[in-house]
Nucleic acid binder design. Sequence first.
DNA 1: TTCAACTTTCCTGATT
DNA 2: CAATCAGGAAAGTTGA
Length: 371
Amino acid sequence: MAATCEISSVFSNYFSAMYTSEDPTLASVPPAAAFGADDLVLALGSPQMPLEGPEKASWSGEQPQLWSKAQVLDWISYQVEKHKYDASTIDLSRCDMDGAALCRCAPEELRLVFGPLGDQLYAQLWDLTSSFPDELSWIMELLEKDSMALQEPLGPGPFDQGSPFAQEMLEDCRQPSPFYPGSFSAGAPSPGSSDVSTTGTGASQSPPASDSGGSDVDLDATDSKPFSGAGFEDCKKGDPKHGKRKRGRPRKLSKESRGCLEGTKSKHAPRGTHLWEFIRDILIHPELNEGLMKWENRQEGVFKFLRSEAVAQLWGQKKKNSSMTYEKLSRAMRYYYKREILERVDGRRLVYKFGKNSSGWQEEEVVGRRN
DNA sequence: TTCAACTTTCCTGATT
DNA sequence: CAATCAGGAAAGTTGA
């Protein structure tokens, strides 16, 4: 049963990480344990720069959740070095944690331990975890093993706490569901690619099993705008309100400046995740988005943003774009009107409706795909 | 390298 | 007044 509880807590932590900011108490503070501060000092003394040189850092190429304490240290020291942060201000005793514990930390916790660097760490960590296509798969693997070994229903765990979706979620997990790791939104036929023909060919999108699916699985702590830290803000944009600027989208920051936003990850985030699919996936997985959006009329495909900025942040995370806002997201949404992927819902704020060129959101489709 | 599709960014103005 | 909506314009990203 211990394993069961552990897995339940893994889930719990995963979800608390998703919505951390909402309730910071959900995530546990990493153990302040008897840890040799010297270790960190040592590590800090010789930070590994994974992106440079032939030698890779111990942590690079491995999922953060699986990092050992040493790898966590390596990573922290790398970040400290990278951001020229004064390590002496860090509470070293609280750095004694493995990757799993690190991943469970809420932004505020990281801020508590690492000060302003906490936001950077959180962002980087998110980047790293989301760069692995199957970030839930490790949980699923555990689940699979667990259920095989125990052959008994999961007992009441943290996951049980008032989440009406827990059971459904677990059931889903046991099936080769298209919604879960590896093939998330790919489960849907991606009309954006084949059905949508109003503009152009509509070809070449959403290859099955591509990153596209990541959508919901990528959900993470956002509600409270996890990347709103001042330092991060500085990093992501300059000073936009300095007089008039030329119309249109300005050039992006140089690779160097972007370095502060990105950790190790492949450059080519495969195309495939379209905004509307992302939205749809959130909607059809209430267990993953509780409180972000809701159906106003499921039959008609009418939905509403409850926490517009949070959704925008999620989308931004998905696209590795921390400066995404609801305003920008909504602009993209409005472009869908022309293509009839979405339909206007006049007079209602934050309300949209799926159009005839969208699919995969109808209940029958969803149910069909789950079976 | 080029192109098309799609998204992002910024802007102005209107509406809620 | 702030948030949101609308939509033009132009540039960035990505896969083919």
